[in-house]
């Protein structure tokens, strides 16, 4: 089977899986305790108000009817309005998604680059002090509790030293200043990004380091490495051109999936740093039964993960000539 047939077959699978996820999500939210109205604890909200509102939202209809109605709307590109924002959920997601992508995608790429690089060095120096130091460092930072780490960094670098802003993505002092240009505003975003990015980097680079290290150690046992040495190639060439590209394959899968999952943000990171991303919206929409917003967010994540998997598979064939579909 060639790559085109493989891709078409996987696309059909993706559509089926997406439909299953769509249905499961719909049922999960409807069967979970509570509804959007019960969260409004207000003596002024009478039972009659609640009933009227449920009817207007279509939530009084039988479940199958709500499902068909939702399916029809989604197929026509209408994901509904958020119960709390009163806005189309697509608008809310498109407001927040770029912020999440900016922070989390940057952190995944940065962590992966540094992790792969250090993992390569650690494996090459197996058993030496460099390896021990790097492996221990990776294990320690990777196992730290993210909110704790984030708060410690905020306390030191934002509160004590005033090097970085405590939270948010932009500073009102800059953005409300009519004299601020694009560069200044861009630098402002970058300035706000450093602390959350550092937190994510510290937490995640270790996993890439350890993955790359173990993959490299396996690769270094391969016959072609022995052959390369027998040919008298330089150690650096063997490491960088023979071992590392082969060892990087599992890391590619991991990075691919991490990139896909990065669009759901990290509710904890976004909450501690008040980063206006999709992760916080997910938490809000789920805890307040904002069905349209929660469903659309999860569907988006599902779609990105499914397509990323497909991309990783195709990339595999490109990176490793031995793999053919």
């Amino acid at each position: 089977m060639d790559i085109w047939h493989f891709t078409v077959r996987r696309l059909i699978q993706i559509i089926i899986i997406f439909f299953v996820i769509f249905t499961v999500l719909f049922l999960l939210f409807r069967l979970a305790p509570g509804d959007p109205i019960s969260r409004i604890i207000d003596p002024d909200m009478t039972p009659e108000d609640a009933t009227r509102l449920m009817a207007q939202m279509g939530l009084d209809k039988p479940l199958w009817m709500q499902y068909l109605y939702y399916l029809k709307n989604v197929l026509s590109g209408n994901f509904g309005h958020s119960f709390y924002y009163g806005k189309p959920v697509i608008e809310i997601i498109s407001d927040r998604l770029p912020n999440t992508v900016l922070l989390f995608t940057t952190s995944v790429i940065l962590s992966a680059i540094v992790g792969v690089f250090l993992g390569k060095i650690a494996s090459w120096n197996k058993g030496k002090r460099t390896d021990t130091f790097m492996t221990m460092g990776a294990l320690v930072t990777h196992t730290l509790f993210l909110p704790w780490m984030a708060l410690i960094l905020i306390w030191i670098f934002s509160y004590k030293f005033s090097w970085f802003p405590i939270n948010g993505m932009i500073s009102e002092d800059v953005w409300l200043d009519p004299s601020s240009g694009v560069v200044r505003k861009g630098l402002d975003v970058l300035h706000h990004m450093i602390l959350p990015l550092s937190t994510l980097f510290l937490i995640y680079f270790g996993s890439y380091l350890l993955l790359m290290r173990s993959s490299m150690l396996e690769t270094l046992k391969e016959d072609y490495i022995l052959t390369a040495r027998a040919k008298g190639l330089k150690e650096k060439t063997i490491r960088n051109h023979h071992a590392a590209p082969n060892a990087a394959l599992p890391v590619v899968t991991s990075v691919g999936l991490s990139l896909a999952f990065s669009i759901n943000g990290g509710a904890l990171t976004e909450t501690v740093f008040t980063w206006p991303g999709i992760g916080r919206e997910l938490v809000f929409s789920v805890s307040n039964n904002d069905y349209p917003l929660a469903q659309a967010s999860f569907l988006l994540i599902a779609a990105v993960v499914l397509f990323s998997n497909l991309l990783v598979d195709i990339l595999y064939a490109y990176l490793d000539p031995r793999i053919r579909y």
């Binding site: 924002y85 009163g86 200043d177």
Partner: peptide, 28 residues
Amino acid sequence: VFLLYPGIGFCGSHFLKIGLSDEPKTLN
């Protein structure tokens, strides 16, 4: 400059800054 520049930016004359524990959802 990069680390400190927000402090030399917009200085509103008498703007009260209030922290909220979440963002308002709507002005409707």
